[in-house]
Simulated scan of single mutants.
Amino acid sequence: MSYIMKLIHIQILILLFHSSVLFGQRSLVNSSSGKRNEPIMNDNAEKSSEPCGIDYQDWNLTFEDDFNGSVKDLSENWYLFGDNHGQDELQIYKWEQLSVSDGNLVITAQSLPKPEMASNGITYNYASGWIHYKNMVKGNALFEIRCKMPEGREQTLWPAFWMWNGDCSPQTDGYREIDIFEYWGNNFKCGTNNVFWCDGNRNRQGCFIEYCEKQPFFNDFHIFSAAWLNNKLVFYIDGKEIRTVTDYVPSVSAEMYLIANLALGNSPSISEVKFPQRFVIDWIKIYNLKDKENTLETCTRTDNCRKARTINEPEILKVENKNLKDF
């Protein structure tokens, strides 16, 4: 009996020795990497931190335009909007401002040789371009664009990829707008994504969130995405989730226009812009959710739009909850 006890004691010592060696190795590895030892997360905790990206297995690709043809081919999928849109904009939209080059749609903003009058009776000194998808879009869908921003300053250059339908007048069933992104504001390195709606008095209401990058986004192409679900909007940049909205989300059965355009905001800084400026679009894609009951797991803070919030200088490529701060 004592012999058996000795064997058990020896085995325990051996196990303790191996455990100390393994622990020491783990400490050395973490020390050499400059990181503190972190507690090991359980399976549930690990899973809750994972769904920060887009799982394309949840989606069916239903539309894609790679802009590999010519300008004439644009009319197959897009309406080429003319004239002006927005009282506080300085441009007239012209088809001539759209071109296709090296597999990209290029929307060019520039000053006009001479002023031109739009149908609203206002004369404009600048021209730019606008397209919207020929088919109305609905929810339970993912919308994506890969594009490169123009290099303008402050509030003047205003590239956007967005969805819209109606206004707050009694003749409509309510204002609806989802801005997948807009780039404008006092800091040209900052962008926003927005949700707008009509209140009970038919006044336009909305809230936005601003995100700022360490480097300006006009340096390279980036992918902007939005998943429009039942009572949820999820926004992504380069496949990383940056925001989840759960309030004032349009019904998934509501129809909206899908638009890409480059506007010129009414700002004194337009005198500092070096024209022409170009908003370059590599592709636009639309996916439908395979399972309409799938609400998609999300990891960012939920923003219910009841007060304005901002993101304080997050690292866009590694957005985590700790980077989101209320003001």
Rank of each mutant, 00 (worst) to 15 (best):
S119G: 11
Q215T: 08
H132E: 09
W158E: 04
A141S: 15
E177R: 01
G166T: 02
N140I: 00
N140C: 05
P216D: 08
Q215L: 13
G174M: 02
L142P: 13
A118W: 02
C212I: 05
W197A: 08
Y133P: 02
T123K: 13
E213Y: 06
N193K: 04
I131T: 13
S128H: 02
F188Q: 15
C198N: 09
D167A: 05
W158T: 02
Y126L: 05
Y124F: 13
A127V: 06
H132K: 07
E210W: 11
E177N: 12
A160C: 08
G129H: 12
Y175R: 15
Y183S: 13
C207V: 14
S169T: 13
N186R: 15
I145H: 09
I145K: 11
S128G: 13
N219F: 05
K134T: 03
N201F: 08
N120H: 04
N140T: 01
G200F: 05
Y126G: 03
G121A: 07
Y175T: 01
M136K: 10
E144T: 11
G185V: 05
G152K: 01
H132D: 00
T123N: 10
G152P: 10
W184Y: 12
E144R: 10
G185A: 10
F208V: 01
C190A: 12
R204W: 10
W164C: 02
N203I: 14
F188T: 10
C207A: 12
C212T: 13
C212S: 12
I178Q: 11
D173V: 04
G139C: 09
I178K: 07
G121Y: 06
N165W: 04
N187K: 09
P150S: 04
N120A: 08
F196E: 06
C198L: 03
E210A: 12
K148C: 06
E210C: 09
E144C: 12
G121V: 08
D179S: 11
N120G: 09
M163I: 08
R146I: 08
W162N: 14
I122F: 10
Q155R: 13
E182C: 04
Y175M: 03
W130V: 01
P159D: 11
W197M: 03
K134V: 07
T123R: 07
Y126F: 13
T192C: 09
P150I: 13
A160G: 10
E144L: 05
